[in-house]
Design a protein around this nucleic acid. Structure first.
Lengths: 132, 132
DNA sequence: TATCTGTTATATTTGTATTATAACAGATGC
DNA sequence: GCATCTGTTATAATACAAATATAACAGATA
């Protein structure tokens, strides 16, 4: 999977890394159980420090998206993805709320908002690899 | 309008302030042209430094949500809210994308996602003041 | 004139993000 | 057994953002 970083973004590199790996899983580019590059390998590939990659990996592990085996390496969680917990629902709510509030201020209708959501959902799901 | 801050949150205070004012506008608690407290007054009320409030106000002004008159004070934009510009659409897209990707990973269906969006939209719009 | 606005200027403290090295401990391959 | 690969831990340095603390300035108003 190709990682694209924006070094000018105000989003931290380790967050961008997390987001791209999560989207990679969502779109099926990264299969359950699939191996990820080593911290040193990925850091070298994308030109950042190994600790930056390590931080992203450890946060992903903490949230249950990947497994880290001390002398084997890093793999996408092989069994099943983390589920929709009450804590996650709360986090998601707090993330969405200010975005939706601003959309309302700017005059977007509920229908337009739902359409944008549906559009992004489609963008993520519609990969070319035939995710069947 | 009552401002509720979470000092333990990792969301910066000035961002929480911006979000609450924007949501206040969205739900109709803050009317167009309505006066906001002075930087010193609000800072004192919520127990933060005047520069923290000033930063929030200036960012809100920069995005077109409020007007700042040098010797009069701060008011909600009296004419009209900022509209849906291409830049805003891009920003919104970049904000929503990782949230939706994680939801997909955790097994939420598109319908569940739309339902959550609709629910939050309702929460914001359904105030008790009869926003007619 | 005193008092209220926002504004500007410094300085300090605190925490995060990122990089740079280095070393450690366990597993693997030759 | 030794070199090499894992992730892990430790330490330090740099850079920046968030927040606070004071202080002063300039224009408007009562």
């Amino acid at each position: 999977m190709i990682i694209q970083l924006d070094m000018q973004s105000d989003v931290p590199i380790y967050t961008q890394l997390m987001n791209q790996i999560i989207e990679g899983i969502a779109r099926g580019d990264l299969k359950l159980g699939e191996a990820l590059p080593s911290v040193r390998g990925l850091a070298s590939d994308i030109g950042v420090n190994l600790h930056t990659v390590n931080k992203a990996y450890n946060l992903l592990k903490q949230e249950g998206f990947i497994q880290i085996h001390r002398q084997k390496g890093v793999v996408i969680q092989p069994d099943a993805m983390p589920l929709v917990t009450p804590e996650y629902e709360l986090k998601q709510h707090n993330q969405l709320r200010p975005i939706i509030a601003e959309a309302i201020c700017r005059g977007m209708t509920k229908e337009q908002l739902l359409q944008v959501t549906e559009q992004i959902h489609k963008e993520i799901m519609h990969n070319e690899k035939g995710n069947a």
